[in-house]
């Protein structure tokens, strides 16, 4: 479905990605892992054309995504939940959900059933929500665009444990429903039971790809330990 080969990305003169390879097949849940600053978010930004890759290939359902503007990439069927609870603070919850919606499986009712708090707060402005609720809104907003591939960048980072559980419950539901998902996260205990495959980045390169079962302590210590 999504196939990334040998992409290299620069921020101005400094190189951030030195050859990232990543593959997500239809219906799969793939985890993108690595320590801080290893290029996970840059990889996501490159996929969406926000920090365009200068070399390599990015293909989605055999369509070349490189050099496409961000809105065309999203239209091709990718949905992004960006890092850090990004919604539109001065618009209502409903506006956030409905304005960018595209028809499909995910409807307002389904999103509001998944996150009942969003239904309760539908007329409130997004900036009056708690951090956890804003993250739910950001996920809901991405779902409403009915992406064929959902990309979650650090969706549970810095949230209260109760809220994290609620979001992991949603992610497990995506897995059950066969929603193709690319997941950037650090909590191994949550990822390992649900991921189909893991890709580990170090210093801007893909260094390890495999099933969660193969991710033993030597790999963990080498690439994920702090």
């Amino acid at each position: 479905m999504l196939k990334i080969a040998d992409i290299e990305t620069f921020y101005g003169p400094s190189q951030a990605l030195f050859g990232v390879n990543l593959e997500v097949n239809a219906g799969e849940m793939v985890a993108l892992m690595g320590r801080n600053g290893m290029g996970k978010t840059t990889t996501i930004r490159s996929i969406f054309g926000l920090t365009p890759a200068s070399r390599g290939t990015i293909e989605f359902e055999s369509q070349n995504l490189r050099r496409l503007p961000a809105y065309r990439i999203a239209k091709a069927g990718l949905g992004l939940v960006p890092e850090g609870r990004r919604c539109f603070p001065n618009l209502s919850v409903r506006e956030n959900l409905l304005v960018t919606a595209r028809p499909g499986e995910w409807t307002l009712e389904k999103v509001e059933t998944l996150f009942p708090r969003l239904e309760e707060r539908r007329a409130q402005m997004a900036k009056t929500l708690s951090g956890g609720e804003q993250q739910m809104l950001a996920i809901g907003r991405a779902l409403m665009t009915n992406p064929r591939l959902l990309v979650l960048d650090e969706a549970t980072e810095g949230l209260a444990p109760v809220i994290r559980q609620e979001i992991w419950r949603a992610i497990r539901l995506f897995k059950e429903q066969g929603q193709s998902t690319l997941l950037v996260d650090k909590s191994l205990s949550e990822i390992l039971p649900i991921a189909d495959r893991c890709t580990i980045l170090e210093k801007g390169s893909t260094v390890w790809v495999g099933e969660p079962a193969a991710l033993d302590s030597s790999v963990r210590d080498r690439y994920l330990g702090v």
Partner: peptide, 19 residues
């Protein structure tokens, strides 16, 4: 609402599939 989104953050709007 889309115009407001474009004003607040056009990148965020674009990643939702709207130019």
């Amino acid at each position: 609402a889309a115009l407001t989104m474009a004003r607040l953050n056009d990148v965020r709007l674009a990643t939702a599939g709207i130019s």
